[in-house]
Amino acid sequence: MDLTRIAGSRWAVEECFQQAKGQAGLDEYQVRDWRAWHAHITLSMAALAWIVVARNATTKGEPAATAGR
Rank of each mutant, 00 (worst) to 15 (best):
F17T: 04
A49V: 13
A7N: 01
E14H: 00
K21S: 04
V52N: 12
M45Q: 05
H40P: 10
W11I: 11
Q18A: 07
W11E: 11
Q23M: 14
D2V: 02
W50R: 06
A46C: 14
A12I: 08
P63E: 06
G22F: 08
I41K: 05
K60G: 01
I51W: 03
N56V: 01
G61D: 09
V13L: 08
R69Q: 08
Q18P: 00
Y29N: 14
G61L: 06
C16E: 07
W34Q: 10
Q19F: 08
C16N: 05
Q18E: 06
H38M: 13
G68P: 02
L48I: 11
A24K: 09
A24W: 13
T58L: 07
L43R: 12
V13N: 01
G22T: 08
P63S: 04
M1L: 07
G25K: 13
W11T: 04
I51M: 05
Q30T: 15
G8W: 00
Y29T: 04
F17S: 01
T59P: 00
D27T: 14
A36V: 09
I41S: 02
A46P: 10
T59S: 05
S9H: 03
G68M: 07
T4W: 07
Q23K: 15
M45K: 09
A46D: 14
I51C: 00
T58M: 12
A47G: 11
Y29H: 12
E14G: 00
I6Y: 03
D33P: 01
L43Q: 07
A54S: 02
S9N: 04
E28F: 09
A39F: 14
N56A: 04
L43K: 08
E62R: 14
V31P: 02
A36F: 07
K21L: 10
A49K: 10
D33A: 04
I6C: 02
A65D: 00
A49G: 09
R35C: 02
Q23F: 13
V52A: 03
A12Y: 02
H40N: 08
K21W: 01
M45N: 07
K60Q: 06
V53C: 04
L48K: 11
G68S: 11
A47M: 08
A36Q: 11
I6A: 02
V31C: 06
G61S: 01
A67Q: 15
A64I: 11
D27S: 14
W50E: 12
A67Y: 14
A49S: 12
M45G: 03
G61H: 03
L48G: 10
A20P: 05
A7F: 07
W37M: 09
M1K: 03
R69E: 13
W11N: 01
T4I: 05
A54F: 00
T58Q: 10
Y29E: 04
A49H: 13
Q19N: 14
E15S: 12
E28R: 14
G61Y: 06
H38G: 01
G25T: 14
W37S: 11
Q18V: 11
R69L: 04
V13F: 10
I51A: 02
V13T: 10
R55H: 12
A49I: 15
R32K: 13
T66E: 13
T59N: 05
A20T: 06
Q19M: 11
V53T: 05
T4Y: 08
L48C: 10
T4S: 10
Q19P: 04
E28Q: 15
A20R: 08
A7K: 04
